[in-house]
Protein backbone atom coordinates (compact mmCIF):
# COMPACT_ATOMS: atom_id res chain seq x y z
CA UNK A 1 0.00 0.00 0.00
CA UNK A 2 1.07 3.56 -0.66
CA UNK A 3 2.70 5.82 1.91
CA UNK A 4 0.77 9.05 2.44
CA UNK A 5 3.47 11.00 0.63
CA UNK A 6 3.01 8.83 -2.45
CA UNK A 7 -0.71 9.48 -2.75
CA UNK A 8 -2.05 11.50 -5.64
CA UNK A 9 -4.24 14.19 -4.11
CA UNK A 10 -5.16 16.92 -6.58
CA UNK A 11 -5.64 20.48 -5.32
CA UNK A 12 -8.77 21.15 -7.33
CA UNK A 13 -11.03 18.63 -5.64
CA UNK A 14 -12.53 18.59 -2.15
CA UNK A 15 -12.43 15.53 0.08
CA UNK A 16 -14.96 14.00 2.44
CA UNK A 17 -14.10 12.16 5.67
CA UNK A 18 -15.31 8.92 4.05
CA UNK A 19 -12.78 9.41 1.23
CA UNK A 20 -15.12 10.51 -1.52
CA UNK A 21 -14.00 13.55 -3.53
CA UNK A 22 -16.15 16.24 -5.16
CA UNK A 23 -15.35 18.66 -7.98
CA UNK A 24 -17.63 21.56 -8.92
CA UNK A 25 -17.79 22.57 -12.58
CA UNK A 26 -20.52 24.62 -14.22
CA UNK A 27 -23.00 23.99 -11.44
CA UNK A 28 -22.51 20.22 -11.53
CA UNK A 29 -20.58 18.24 -8.90
CA UNK A 30 -18.57 15.23 -10.05
CA UNK A 31 -18.00 12.63 -7.35
CA UNK A 32 -15.48 9.82 -7.03
CA UNK A 33 -13.27 8.16 -4.43
CA UNK A 34 -9.78 9.29 -3.49
CA UNK A 35 -6.49 7.68 -4.36
CA UNK A 36 -6.18 6.74 -0.69
CA UNK A 37 -9.54 4.94 -0.82
CA UNK A 38 -8.80 2.99 -3.99
CA UNK A 39 -5.37 2.04 -2.66
CA UNK A 40 -6.78 0.78 0.64
CA UNK A 41 -9.58 -1.14 -1.05
CA UNK A 42 -7.28 -2.83 -3.52
CA UNK A 43 -8.47 -4.15 -6.87
CA UNK A 44 -12.01 -2.90 -7.40
CA UNK A 45 -14.20 -5.58 -8.94
CA UNK A 46 -17.65 -4.03 -8.93
CA UNK A 47 -19.34 -0.70 -8.44
CA UNK A 48 -23.01 -0.46 -7.58
CA UNK A 49 -24.26 2.76 -9.13
CA UNK A 50 -27.47 4.68 -8.42
CA UNK A 51 -30.02 5.44 -11.14
CA UNK A 52 -30.12 8.75 -12.96
CA UNK A 53 -32.62 11.14 -11.31
CA UNK A 54 -32.21 9.49 -7.90
CA UNK A 55 -32.13 12.14 -5.20
CA UNK A 56 -29.97 11.82 -2.09
CA UNK A 57 -29.20 13.99 0.88
CA UNK A 58 -25.70 14.84 1.93
CA UNK A 59 -24.28 11.89 3.86
CA UNK A 60 -26.75 9.43 2.40
CA UNK A 61 -25.51 6.19 0.87
CA UNK A 62 -25.66 6.30 -2.93
CA UNK A 63 -23.86 3.12 -3.92
CA UNK A 64 -21.17 0.68 -2.99
CA UNK A 65 -17.79 -0.34 -4.20
CA UNK A 66 -16.47 -3.88 -3.95
CA UNK A 67 -13.08 -5.47 -3.90
CA UNK A 68 -12.73 -9.27 -3.83
CA UNK A 69 -13.25 -9.54 -0.10
CA UNK A 70 -14.78 -6.27 1.03
CA UNK A 71 -17.72 -4.00 0.33
CA UNK A 72 -17.69 -0.29 1.15
CA UNK A 73 -20.65 2.00 1.01
CA UNK A 74 -20.23 5.40 -0.65
CA UNK A 75 -21.89 8.47 0.86
CA UNK A 76 -22.93 11.71 -0.80
CA UNK A 77 -20.42 14.49 -0.08
CA UNK A 78 -23.17 16.87 -1.11
CA UNK A 79 -26.94 16.43 -1.47
CA UNK A 80 -28.66 16.55 -4.83
CA UNK A 81 -30.00 14.79 -7.90
CA UNK A 82 -27.94 12.30 -9.89
CA UNK A 83 -27.67 13.59 -13.47
CA UNK A 84 -25.07 11.24 -14.89
CA UNK A 85 -23.42 7.96 -13.91
CA UNK A 86 -20.15 6.56 -15.19
CA UNK A 87 -21.43 3.52 -17.01
CA UNK A 88 -17.89 2.55 -18.11
CA UNK A 89 -17.43 1.30 -14.57
CA UNK A 90 -19.90 -1.52 -15.19
CA UNK A 91 -17.42 -3.36 -17.38
CA UNK A 92 -14.21 -1.71 -16.24
CA UNK A 93 -14.34 -1.12 -12.50
CA UNK A 94 -10.52 -1.05 -12.57
CA UNK A 95 -10.78 2.54 -13.90
CA UNK A 96 -11.19 3.57 -10.27
CA UNK A 97 -7.83 2.01 -9.44
CA UNK A 98 -6.14 3.36 -12.56
CA UNK A 99 -7.55 6.86 -12.69
CA UNK A 100 -9.51 7.75 -9.57
CA UNK A 101 -9.98 11.44 -10.45
CA UNK A 102 -10.56 11.25 -14.19
CA UNK A 103 -11.75 8.12 -15.98
CA UNK A 104 -12.74 6.60 -12.64
CA UNK A 105 -15.27 9.27 -11.65
CA UNK A 106 -18.48 7.73 -10.33
CA UNK A 107 -21.49 10.05 -10.52
CA UNK A 108 -22.41 13.65 -11.41
CA UNK A 109 -24.88 15.46 -9.24
CA UNK A 110 -26.93 18.64 -9.49
CA UNK A 111 -26.43 19.93 -5.93
CA UNK A 112 -29.34 21.16 -3.84
CA UNK A 113 -27.15 23.56 -1.94
CA UNK A 114 -23.66 24.44 -3.13
CA UNK A 115 -22.81 25.67 0.36
CA UNK A 116 -22.66 22.05 1.50
CA UNK A 117 -19.34 21.85 -0.31
CA UNK A 118 -17.88 24.16 2.33
CA UNK A 119 -17.87 21.32 4.87
CA UNK A 120 -15.48 19.27 2.75
CA UNK A 121 -11.73 19.17 3.24
CA UNK A 122 -9.09 20.77 1.08
CA UNK A 123 -6.02 18.74 0.20
CA UNK A 124 -3.93 19.75 3.23
CA UNK A 125 -6.71 19.20 5.70
CA UNK A 126 -7.40 15.80 4.13
CA UNK A 127 -3.73 14.83 4.42
CA UNK A 128 -3.76 15.93 8.04
CA UNK A 129 -6.80 13.76 8.63
CA UNK A 130 -5.12 10.76 6.98
CA UNK A 131 -2.03 11.26 9.12
CA UNK A 132 -4.14 11.56 12.22
CA UNK A 133 -5.88 8.29 11.52
CA UNK A 134 -2.67 6.39 11.05
Amino acid sequence: MKEINDLILPEEVLYADDHEWARMEDGIVTIGVSDYAQDQLGDIVYVELPDIDDVYEKGEEFGSIESVKAVSEMYMPVGGKVVEINSDLENSPELINQSPYDDGWIIKVLPDDENELDDLLEKDAYIAMLKGSE
Partner: peptide, 9 residues
Protein backbone atom coordinates in the same frame (compact mmCIF):
# COMPACT_ATOMS: atom_id res chain seq x y z
CA UNK B 1 -18.68 -12.81 -5.93
CA UNK B 2 -18.29 -13.49 -2.20
CA UNK B 3 -19.28 -9.94 -1.33
CA UNK B 4 -22.92 -11.09 -1.51
CA UNK B 5 -22.31 -13.53 1.31
CA UNK B 6 -22.73 -13.51 5.06
CA UNK B 7 -19.06 -13.50 6.02
CA UNK B 8 -18.51 -10.21 4.21
CA UNK B 9 -21.79 -8.37 3.97
Amino acid sequence: LATREQHIR
